[in-house]
Amino acid sequence: MILWVLLASVALSGVTTGSPTVTAHPDAASENRVQATAVVAVEEVMETGELNPNHYPAQRPAKVVQHYLNTLHGSPYKLFGLHKVKRAYAEDVPGSGRKYQLELSVQEVVQKQTTASCSAEVIFPREATHPPLQVNILSYGDDLLKINVSVQEEALYQQYKKNHSLLFAQNLPDSYGHMEPEHVPFWHLGAVASSFVMLGESTEYTLYNMAQVANVTQLPSDDDLLKFEYDVLLHEMVSQDIIAWKVLITWSPPEGVKVLKMEKRDYTVTNLKTTLL
């Protein structure tokens, strides 16, 4: 798993019950917005042709590929992370936007056993008349999809389907990077839910990671699906904002993760020391 340790300072107002401890810094928030605007202004003229694989213009579309794979195949025991960008090429496509052709490697980060090469195209819209963000996976290693976690998934599903007390957990991980072992699958599930949000929010000028699951609450369900409400904190690397979202999902081994609702919350977090995925 590719992990970064972060000490972030951004602003907050209007925290709901169960959210991390925060304080308000409106001046810091304004400064972050100014810095983010400056970055966007500098990058209005994007590079064309071969890109440096280690620089932001190549890393951003590659992270979009990671989020896309998680929305398709992610689960409490299967989660994909960007391992390395090997090659990136950018070009303007009239009528569509800006296309990035990528050669990268992706790692399944829960089992930590499989890393595979992946080819993909990502097209970011440039105009309101352009189609929305498009991701096309051209090829990736079959080993990624052959990882068999059905036994673990079924055991988790049965445990929480039969539970008389519904799950509630917060601050995954906490400020020291710790979480209880029984909560780790729900941190992974929160990362998958976050990928749906980050995929929808990503542009050429953003780079998102999940910073923390602030809260996860299991909700009653009348069908065969487990239902969870997540409060997740997302780190936008360019502006340095940590943005809160509420995501309502269902999950079961045969159905996978389905998002019922996504809602951006009106606060960000200060002095959060955590792990980014």
Rank of each mutant, 00 (worst) to 15 (best):
Y89A: 08
G190R: 10
L3N: 11
N209Y: 10
L51M: 13
S150Q: 10
V216W: 00
A120S: 06
R60P: 01
V22F: 04
Q170M: 13
Q111R: 14
F228N: 03
T203M: 03
Y89Q: 14
W245P: 00
E180F: 06
M210F: 15
A169V: 08
N215P: 05
Q212F: 11
T250S: 07
V197W: 07
A36M: 09
H55M: 12
D222G: 11
Y77F: 15
A88L: 03
G14V: 15
S202D: 03
A191N: 05
S165Y: 13
E204A: 15
D224P: 01
V45Y: 12
Y89D: 03
S175H: 10
V149L: 08
A244H: 03
F168Y: 14
V45I: 13
A38W: 06
S221D: 11
S175V: 00
L272Y: 05
S75N: 04
M198N: 04
G95F: 04
E44L: 14
E127Q: 15
A155E: 09
S194A: 15
A191W: 03
L104Y: 04
D266R: 13
S30I: 07
D174H: 13
H188C: 15
K99C: 12
K258F: 12
V93D: 02
P185V: 04
A244S: 13
E263N: 09
K84R: 15
R87L: 10
L133I: 06
K264H: 03
L276Q: 05
T16C: 01
K161C: 10
S194N: 08
L145I: 02
P53N: 03
A191S: 07
Y157I: 06
I123G: 01
E236T: 10
P253N: 08
L51G: 02
W187C: 01
G81M: 09
M179F: 13
N171C: 14
V122M: 05
G256V: 03
D92S: 14
P53D: 05
W245E: 00
M1I: 12
A24K: 02
P94T: 08
H55E: 10
L233K: 02
V64A: 03
A244L: 09
L172G: 00
R60L: 08
L166D: 00
M210Y: 05
H183I: 13
N52T: 13
V10M: 01
E153P: 01
K86H: 14
I249S: 02
S139K: 14
A120H: 02
Q218T: 14
Q113T: 11
H188F: 13
D142L: 04
Q152A: 11
H55C: 10
V184H: 09
H67K: 10
K63G: 00
L6W: 02
V259T: 06
A58Q: 04
A90F: 03
R265E: 00
G95W: 08
P53F: 07
Q101R: 14
H83K: 14
V34R: 05
E91G: 13
K162M: 10
K261T: 11
V184Q: 03
S19T: 15
V151M: 07
H67M: 11
P57M: 10
